[in-house]
Simulated assay, not measured.
Amino acid sequence: MRLPFLFVLLTVMIDAMGIGLVLPIMPELIVEVQGGTLASAAIWGGVLSTTFAAMQFVFGPILGNLSDAYGRRVVLLVSLFVMALDYVVMALAGSIWLLVLGRLVGGITAATHATAAAFMADVSKPKDKAANFGLLGAAFGVGFVLGPVIGGLLSEYGTRAPFWAAAGLSTLAFAIGVFVMPETVTDKTRRTFSLRRANPVNSLRAIASLPGIRPMLWVYFLYSVSIYVYPAIWAYFTTERFGWSPQMIGLSLGVYGIGMAAVQGGLIRPATRYFGERRTIIFGMGFEIVSFIILGFLTNGFIALMLIPITAIGAIVTPALQAMTSRATPDSQQGELQGVLTSLHAMSMVISPLVMTSVFAQFARPDAVLYLPGAPFLLAMLLMVVGFVLFFRSPKVMT
């Protein structure tokens, strides 16, 4: 099982690289195909992110249920193959509407991480789940280190070069998976596919009905809405506040990825072992609250760059929350659970980019009553506080 385990980590890393590759060039690309100002580009950036997320919300539970019925292998490989085609479409897009179409298809196929998480749940002992989910997060972080840095460098060759690179990476992952990826769903754990149950609302109800799960789902959702402020506005915020170039934006995202990989790959195991998952989550959310306050008012780009790896400590929350919910879910519903978590994350990606970019546009305008480009981070802080209080007051039934 060692090669498949490494392949799944590699797939998540390549997926993160594909996402990170295009982040540094999105503001420039949107202005190129649509025209307008950076503020209007931020609005279109929110639309593209929301389109992507809306498809994840609808199809996340469907793909999760399909993986419970037909296996992780087929869902993972098909997703990678179509994802490669989607990046080709994005590379050739000459209008904003083709970019929107590309994000529609991309959102449908972006089940790689959820399917990988279901695979990890299949092969992990209960005591190892937090650590193995952390390895997935670390792999994502490594990809996020390489992706933005490479994307920033490739931007020297035009705004389309990163899309071609992302298409190549997805194709490579697909080719490797064909040869090494086994099936981990057995006849014992296989569950018949039901389109009615695959509905996002019905899947959410089924998982939320499990003992102790409902408050954790709310916390996961609020945390996701808050944390998505980073990819939603970082390129626009750092361009406006610090005058950073695409190369500098790529470097900063790479620094964040290094920090996230170090936290989820190295810190999560000792943290959950010595403090338990519950106190680990409380610490991580508290750390994010402080980070958001600082970024909200920060005006020095050098300090922002130095602060990035420290803010990554908050990434410890996700694997701990995943482990708590996975341990409380039957083996036959692990794919459904990951689909629900993907759906909640997707819903946060629907809400967060639209809200955060709109707040940024209002406070970054030349005629703004209060010029405060960091305002979205302060909004994220308030949402994180709500999630923190809800988690702190929730029953300790899964600890």
Rank of each mutant, 00 (worst) to 15 (best):
P4G: 09
L6D: 02
I19D: 08
L21Q: 08
M26G: 02
A42R: 11
V47Y: 15
L48M: 13
S49P: 07
F57T: 06
L63T: 10
V74H: 08
V88H: 11
V89G: 08
V89P: 09
M90I: 10
S95V: 03
L101I: 15
G102S: 10
L104C: 14
F119M: 14
F119C: 04
A131I: 01
A131F: 12
F140G: 06
G141Y: 05
V145T: 14
G152P: 01
A167E: 09
G168A: 07
S170G: 05
A175Y: 02
I176Y: 08
G177A: 07
M181A: 07
T189A: 13
R190F: 13
T192E: 15
R197N: 14
P200C: 09
S203F: 06
R214Y: 14
M216P: 02
L222I: 01
Y223R: 04
S226Q: 04
R241D: 00
S245G: 06
G254V: 03
V255P: 00
G259H: 12
L267T: 00
E277H: 10
P319Q: 02
M324V: 06
T325C: 13
S326W: 02
T329W: 15
G339L: 07
H345C: 02
V350T: 11
P353M: 08
S358A: 12
S358C: 04
L370Y: 14
P376T: 04
F377C: 01
L378Q: 06
A380I: 02
M381S: 13
M381I: 01
L383M: 14
V385W: 03
V385Y: 03
F392V: 08
P395R: 09
